[in-house]
């Protein structure tokens, strides 16, 4: 408990330090506005609805790419799992997949799909899907043998075994994949909007940066940070429950 308290104190102290440095002018206003001002600015832009369209586009794209990568990754994972020779061939590629800086393919998607949601979702899915494939393979690998044997003893059909035994047993691992897919979708969507696009929160931040509109810029940054932290905390709570269930 005291560790939690200490952590809160550390974070609050850091924010207060930044606030103080901004207020006494060590950090000039052109570089960074005070954290309290960021909150005020965020309230203003949310109330005025100036960026609602951008915010809606970004979060819709993140949701679409998360759903797509989870579904595609799960299906691909199941297929790869059921074909051991394919799996042997693909596994070395999966291991080095995340070494590739995926964003260098973003320009290729732009020439293929044009500037817009399609290329953004494509790059986000490309980034996220492999973590789901790996998590699915890992989950299916770790189903205890005894569970499948129990299913055989009960003479369950293949479909029933999959739904009642394999899926629940693999769920904690699958959820790790879901968590990673969410994180990668966030990064993929916001970063591609930021580099080159015509709409979205990432685009709005880049636009505000180019116009030196620090108020808008920091308000939007704060918004992203808050949303990501809340989503992560929520997913971690679910994750912890699932992991606890596994150890029971």
């Amino acid at each position: 408990m005291s560790e939690k308290l200490l952590r809160v104190i550390v974070v609050v102290a850091m924010i207060l330090l930044v606030e103080l440095l901004c207020r006494i002018g060590v950090i000039p206003r052109m570089v960074m506005i005070a954290p309290s001002d960021m909150v005020v600015e965020l309230g203003k832009i949310l109330a005025s609805g100036q960026f609602s369209a951008d915010i809606r586009i970004t979060f819709t794209n993140i949701a679409i790419s998360t759903v797509l990568s989870v579904l595609l990754g799960f299906v691909a994972g199941v297929i790869i799992y059921s074909l051991p020779s394919l799996r042997d061939a693909i596994e070395p590629l999966l291991a080095s997949y995340y070494a590739v800086p995926t964003f260098v393919f973003y320009p290729i998607f732009i020439t293929l799909f044009g500037v817009g949601s399609a290329s953004i979702i494509a790059i986000a899915v490309l980034l996220a899907v492999v973590s789901m494939v790996t998590a699915t393979l890992n989950g299916l690998d770790r189903i205890p043998r005894v569970l499948r044997k129990t299913g055989q003893i009960y003479r369950m059909s293949r479909v029933k075994t999959a739904l009642l035994i394999e899926l629940p047993a693999a769920t904690p691992y699958l959820f790790t994949g879901v968590k990673l897919s969410v994180a990668y979708s966030f990064i993929g969507v916001i970063a591609s909007e930021f580099i080159l696009s015509g709409a979205g929160v990432g685009y709005a931040i880049a636009y505000a940066y180019n116009l030196f509109e620090n108020g808008h810029m920091y308000a939007l940054m704060l918004l992203v940070l808050i949303v990501v932290t809340v989503v992560n905390t929520f997913l971690n709570v679910i994750d912890r429950r699932l992991q606890a269930r596994r150890q029971r």
Binding site: V31, I190, G202, I205, A208, Y209, M217, L225, V228, T229
Partner: peptide, 13 residues
């Protein structure tokens, strides 16, 4: 886990 791109303007400034 935060998308660090959003902080890039801060780094640039």
């Amino acid at each position: 886990s935060i998308p660090k791109v959003v902080l890039y303007p801060l780094v640039l400034l």
